[in-house]
């Protein structure tokens, strides 16, 4: 598949880079969107929004974010900054999302 992909685009791309990009599109974009959903839910609840409202709004928007991130991950010129950004968003979102629970639980 990588062979054919490079045949159809202008510049040849290594198979390893294609694999990394595909993983970033499928799993990286999902992980980042899931982390942002967690952060969004935590933020809205802190701001006094009802739990169900917070979750419903954030999860529905989360799918659109996933779609947007997947498209961006496919289009981004440079692989390393793209992967780095997705990882950073995932880490930051998870941190913000679960921090209140951790502090509250301790």
């Amino acid at each position: 598949m990588a062979k054919a992909a490079s045949a159809s685009s202008s510049a040849p791309v290594g198979a390893g880079k294609v694999v990394v990009r595909v993983l970033a599109i499928v799993f990286g974009a999902y992980a980042a969107s899931a982390a942002v959903v967690a952060a969004g839910v935590a933020g809205l609840i802190l701001a006094g929004v009802n739990k169900s409202d917070a979750f419903t709004v954030c999860s529905i928007l989360g799918f659109l974010l996933y779609v947007g991130l997947a498209i961006w991950a496919a289009a981004a010129r440079r692989l390393v900054p793209m992967v780095g950004t997705l990882l950073f968003v995932t880490a930051a979102g998870t941190g913000i999302g679960f921090l209140p629970a951790l502090i509250g639980g301790a």
């Binding site: 899931a34 967690a38 609840i45 169900s52 979750f55």
Partner: peptide
């Protein structure tokens, strides 16, 4: 996909509801 949002985004469910998905159903 939004029908099963509580399955696809367990991250948000864990943050918001006690008892995971059953908590989500009970509260929502």
């Amino acid at each position: 996909v939004t029908i099963l949002a509580s399955v696809y985004y367990p991250s948000g469910v864990w943050v918001a509801f006690e008892g995971g998905r059953s908590g989500y159903v009970r509260d929502t």
